[in-house]
Design a protein around this nucleic acid. Structure first.
Length: 355
DNA sequence: GATTCGTGGTC
DNA sequence: TGACCAAGAAT
C-alpha cells in the first residue's frame, strides 16, 4: 500500500500548510482571505484573472497600483472588453511585458463575445484564452473556482526542489517538480492551497536566506535535512547580455505638441507609444530623422536594460514650426501628452530633455 | 526546446 | 555597477 500511504502523508502535509496559511496568509487586494473564504465568500474570477496576468514575472509590489487602477477604471470584464486599445496600453505603461496588455484585451473581448461575459470554469476552457498559459489557467481554476488544479510557478518550483532535494537544473526538472506538486495538491481547499504554496515560497522558502525555522514543512524537507536549501533550485547558466545602440528623436512643435509613433503590435514594446527612432542593434545606428529640423544631440544617453540586452540610446531633440509635416509619427497635443503613457525606456529619454 | 519579451528592487 | 530575481506565455 505504498500508494495509499503516500497519499495519506501528502494530505497531512497539505493540511499542515493550510493551517499555516490560515494564520499567515498575506493580505492582497485581489485575495479573499482564508477566513472569508471559509465563510462562503467567493473570489471574483475577473479580479483573479487580472491579478494573475499582472503577476506574471512581476512582483506583488509593482502590481498593486496597476491592479487598483485597472479594476477601478474597468470594474468588469465587459467594461474592459469595451475599452479603447490605446487606453489599455497607456494604463499598462511601465509594468512591462506588453504582450500581456494586448492579450489582456483580446482575452476580455473573447470572454465578453464568446462566453457571454463569464469566464470558462474548466482548465481547458481557461487555457484556450489569449495570454492564459498552464500556470494562469491552473491558478484561476483553483483560486476562482476551487478546482483541484496544480499551480506551478517559480515559487512552487523552488519549494518542490527543496522539499525533495532535487538537484536536476531547471527547466529540465520542471516535469519532475510538477509531479511533486501535483501529488501534494489539496482536494479539500484547492484555492487556498494554491495561494498557500505560493505564499510559502514568497515569504518563507525565499530564493535567498530562506526562513527554514518558521517553515511548516521543515520536518518534511529533504533539503533542510541535508542543508542544501541555499543551492536549490539549480538553474541552467544564463547568457550575458550584449549592448545595443540606438537613436531616439524627441521633436517638440512650437505649440508644445510632441511627435510620437505607435510601435507595431509584435516585437519589443509592441503596441506601445514611443519616440521615433533608429533600429536598436549592436552596430552604430544610421541617422534617420523622422522630420526635417535642426537637431541637437544631448550629452547624456538614456541607458536601459531589457530582458536580453542593454540599450544605450542617443537622444536628439528639435523644435519645429507648426506647418512642418513629419515623415513618421504623429504630433500629440501638449494637453493630451503624458509621459506616463510611455514605456520606461521612452520615459528615460524624455527625462533627459527636462533635466 | 530555445528565444523573446520589461521593469524595479536587491545584494 | 552588474547580475540575479519576480504568481510565464507565445513562438
Amino acid at each position: 500500500m505504498i500508494k495509499g500511504m503516500s497519499a495519506t502523508r501528502d494530505t497531512a502535509q497539505a493540511a499542515d500548510l493550510l493551517t499555516w496559511y490560515d494564520r499567515h496568509a498575506r493580505e492582497l487586494p485581489w485575495r479573499v482571505s482564508p477566513a472569508a473564504r471559509a465563510a462562503g465568500v467567493r473570489p471574483d474570477p475577473y479580479r483573479v484573472w487580472m491579478s494573475e496576468i499582472m503577476l506574471q514575472q512581476t512582483t506583488v509590489a509593482a502590481v498593486k497600483s496597476y491592479f487598483e487602477a485597472f479594476t477601478t477604471r474597468w470594474p468588469t470584464v465587459s467594461d474592459l472588453a469595451a475599452a479603447e486599445d490605446a487606453d489599455v496600453m497607456a494604463a499598462w505603461a511601465g509594468l512591462g511585458y506588453y504582450a500581456r496588455a494586448r492579450n489582456l484585451l483580446k482575452c476580455a473581448r473573447a470572454v465578453a463575445d464568446e462566453h457571454g461575459g463569464v469566464f470558462p470554469q474548466t482548465l481547458e476552457g481557461l487555457r484556450a484564452l489569449p495570454g492564459v498559459g498552464p500556470y494562469t489557467a491552473a491558478a484561476v481554476a483553483a483560486i476562482a473556482f476551487d478546482l483541484p488544479e496544480t499551480v506551478v510557478d517559480g515559487n512552487v518550483e523552488r519549494v518542490m526542489a527543496r522539499l525533495h532535494d532535487e538537484h536536476m537544473p531547471l527547466p529540465q526538472s520542471k516535469p519532475v517538480l510538477t509531479g511533486y506538486a501535483a501529488a501534494l495538491t489539496s482536494q479539500g481547499r484547492p484555492g487556498d492551497y494554491a495561494q498557500a504554496v505560493m505564499d510559502l515560497g514568497a515569504t518563507i522558502c525565499t530564493p535567498r536566506n530562506p526562513a527554514c525555522g518558521l517553515c511548516p514543512w521543515r520536518t518534511a524537507c529533504a533539503a533542510w535535512d541535508r542543508g542544501t536549501q541555499a543551492e536549490l533550485p539549480k538553474k541552467a547558466p544564463k547568457k550575458r547580455k550584449p549592448t545595443r545602440h540606438g537613436i531616439a528623436y524627441l521633436v517638440k512643435r512650437v505649440d508644445g505638441a510632441w511627435l510620437l509613433e505607435r510601435r507595431p503590435d509584435s516585437g519589443l514594446l509592441g503596441g506601445m507609444l514611443g519616440w521615433p527612432g533608429s533600429d536598436w542593434s549592436e552596430e552604430a545606428p544610421a541617422d534617420a530623422p523622422p522630420i526635417r529640423a535642426e537637431w541637437k544631440t544631448l550629452n547624456a544617453e538614456a541607458r536601459h536594460t531589457f530582458t536580453h540586452f542593454h540599450l544605450r540610446l542617443t537622444v536628439k531633440t528639435a523644435l519645429v514650426p507648426m506647418e512642418r509635416r513629419p515623415e513618421r509619427g504623429e504630433f500629440v497635443e501638449a494637453e493630451v501628452f503624458d509621459a506616463g503613457d510611455l514605456p520606461t525606456v521612452m520615459r528615460k529619454a524624455f527625462a533627459l530633455t527636462t533635466g
